[in-house]
Structures are given as C-alpha cells and as structure tokens.
C-alpha cells in the first residue's frame, strides 16, 4: 500500500479561475524519491501542499479528485525564515517544537531532537538563538524540526535554495539515507543536476498538469531540454549541436566521448 496516492487531482486557490493543479495522478512508494521539476508557477509547490494536507485545509480553495495518505507527512517550505516557530529561543527548542506539540514524552522528544541535530550536522548550534542564524543554518534547523517529528512521508520544496554547494551535497546524501530507511520522499527542486543521482522518478509539471513522468533520463530528452529543464550536461550537448540522445550526467558524457 503506497503511503501517498493522488488520483485525478484538480485544485483551485480561492478567488482564482485557472486551476493550480489539473488532473494530477501520482503514487509514491515507501523508500521512493520522486523529484518534481518545472518552471516557476508550474504547480510543484501546490502539489506538495496538497500532499501535506495543507491545501485546501489551510490555504482555502477547492479540490476534486482523490488524495490518499496512509502515513504522517512533514513538509519543508521554500522560505526558511517564515518557518521558525517564534516560540523557541534556542535551536534545540526550535527542533523540539513539533515533537512537543505532538505531546510526546520528554525523553522521546530529546532522543529524536538529538538525532535530527546530528543528521543535519548542526549539533554545535543547539544553544544558539534561531534569530541569529544564517539562511543556510535556518534551512537545516527547519528540516531537523520536521525530521524530529519522524514523518513517513517527507515533502521538500526547494530544500537547497539557501545552502552552499557543500551543504546541498550533504542534504542530497541525507535524502538518500532517509529513503533507505523507508520514507517516501517528494522533492520540488531546480537543482536539476542533482536529480539523476538522487531521484528514482521525475515528474515534469507544466501549467498545473503532469506533462511527463519517468526515470531521471527524462532530464536528457529533447522536450525537457527545450523547456530549459534538462541537466547542464544535456543542455550543453544539445547547444553544441551534438546528436541525440543527450547524455544525462558528466559520467554519461565522458562515456559518449570515448
């Protein structure tokens, strides 16, 4: 049984005519990583909000179609600052905010918080005031706060936006580890070059609908590259006028050259 299934979902924000999602069907299995790619406004963020049960419950609007969730989900939104609880005066308390709201016993909260701090490599920040952190640090604190709640479905909206390249690589490694533990993961990202090594499947969204779905090779196809959604290597290959199929990764390109 998949932890998350969407079938024929259509969603309208309040007071808007055009749907933000049109006929979207997507099933995510435990341990699977699905990457959502598309231009700004294509619907990836909305899809994550629907999956997290925040749209239409919190955003308002109307939804038709079926959404089945068989597990607890946690979502990390794109702007880190606005996700600070405002109720914690240290990083430790910030990460413990979610678990405490769930009413877990103190010892269990401590165990999950320590583990989440370690995983995001921010244990050294535990006593700092969240208001004094950098954007990248806050982004890690927020992700730690979600992981400390031990969700079965992890939804990530541009999780590397505030991270430096090394931080982004560490995050993608962590995402693979989480999938290895059996969590279902959906991530909307514009870090296209990271997708082949991270995602099991890619869904390409356009104007609220799934235009194509498949293996990460999708990011080396003519149509995706034309839309500016191919990997850098595929884009360069195509721009150089070299023959399709385009290589997906640097390793693929090297192999093709030989």
């Amino acid at each position: 049984m998949n932890p998350l299934t969407l079938e024929g979902v259509e969603f309208h924000y309040p007071a808007t005519e055009a749907p933000a999602l049109r006929d979207v069907s997507l099933a995510v299995a435990a341990g699977e990583i699905v990457a959502l790619v598309g231009k700004v406004g294509a619907g990836a963020s909305t899809l994550l909000l629907v999956a997290a049960d925040l749209a239409p419950r919190i955003t308002g609007g109307r939804l038709t179609g079926t959404v089945r969730r068989r597990a607890r989900s946690g979502i990390v939104l794109p702007t880190p600052w606005t996700q600070l609880s405002g109720m914690a005066f240290t990083v430790w308390d910030e990460v413990a905010f979610g678990p405490a709201n769930l009413g877990w016993p103190g010892r269990e909260i401590a165990r999950h918080v320590e583990r989440a701090l370690e995983r995001l490599e921010i244990a050294a920040l535990a006593e700092r005031d969240p208001a004094t952190l950098s954007g990248g640090e806050v982004q890690r604190v927020i992700l730690a706060g979600i992981l400390a709640m031990d969700p079965d479905v992890v939804l990530l909206d541009e999780p590397t936006a505030e991270l430096d390249p090394a931080g982004a690589r560490a995050l993608w490694r962590l995402v693979r580890v989480l999938a290895g533990e059996g969590k279902a993961i959906v991530v909307a990202t514009s870090d296209l070059d990271a997708v082949p090594a991270v995602a099991d499947r890619v869904a390409w969204l356009e104007q609220g609908a799934v235009r194509a779905m498949g293996a990460p090779d999708l990011l080396a196809e003519e149509a995706t590259c034309e839309a500016g959604l191919g990997t850098t290597v595929a884009g360069v290959w195509r721009a150089a006028g070299l023959a399709a199929p385009y290589p997906l990764t640097v390793a693929d390109a090297i192999q093709r050259w030989r």
Binding site: I58, L77, T82, Q83, A96, A100, L102, G103, W104, I142
Partner: peptide, 24 residues
Amino acid sequence: HEVDERALALETRGLRSGARRTPL
C-alpha cells in the same frame, strides 16, 4: 504574505488549538 507561510509551517509542525503540548 508571510502570515500565509507562517500558518502553513505551524500547521505542519503540529500547532493546534487544544493540543496538549509537552513542556520542555
């Protein structure tokens, strides 16, 4: 605009009226 994002973030982290929160 920020109110919207704050509401979504609080909801996903379990802040609900009437919830019994564990004192830290």
